[in-house]
């Protein structure tokens, strides 16, 4: 009974985080043709809202996002391909409007930066660990005393019939 209580509580607390993104579909803006509508939503989902920055224009209810959604739908009904619609917006707002920016000269740092930082980190860590294990070797190889060596020899000899050469 207590376990059930805990479970319910846990669900109540965590459920909001599992809720699916509402996808804020603004119904009054829909296109007649379901295929075109699907394309419009697909494109809008990849266009970054300039006002709320980390939302796509599909999710944002900013005024500008609404205008841009309408433009996306207009371009589609005018017969633009997906790439042409994106181009139309990029010409006005730059690569910045794409949530998935293309790989080119001005954005290469954005794309390979994390990998470069990771590699530098890995290199430094390898160097650091190498240096440390080197230190350990010199620290532990102390010469055995005569008694210790004798003891060691005795142990080895008693171990087998002496086939060590």
């Amino acid at each position: 009974m207590k376990a059930l209580c805990h479970l319910t509580l846990l669900l109540c607390v965590t459920l909001p985080f599992f809720a699916l993104p509402a996808g804020a579909v603004f119904l009054d803006e829909r296109l007649e043709d379901p295929a075109q509508e699907a394309r419009a939503r697909d494109i809008s989902g990849d266009i970054r809202c300039l006002v709320c920055q980390n939302q796509s224009i599909l999710d944002s209810n900013a005024d500008l996002a609404q205008d841009l959604r309408q433009i996306v739908r207009e371009r589609i009904t005018l017969g633009d391909s997906d790439a042409e619609v994106r181009d139309y917006l990029v010409r006005r707002y730059g690569d910045w409007v794409l949530l998935d920016p293309p790989f080119k000269m001005t954005t290469y740092l954005l794309w390979i930066g994390p990998a470069v930082i990771f590699l530098i980190g890995a290199l430094l860590m390898i160097l650091f660990l190498r240096g440390r294990s080197g230190q350990n070797e010199t620290a532990t190889t102390t010469v055995l005393t005569r008694e210790e060596q004798a003891e060691l020899d005795r142990l080895f000899d008693s171990d087998g019939p002496g086939d060590r050469s």
Binding site: L50, L64, D67, I71, R92, Y93, G94
Partner: peptide, 13 residues
């Protein structure tokens, strides 16, 4: 009036 010229200019605020 509709903000279309603004969008052509890349206005976002």
């Amino acid at each position: 009036l509709k903000g279309r010229v603004g969008i052509d200019f890349g206005v976002y605020g």
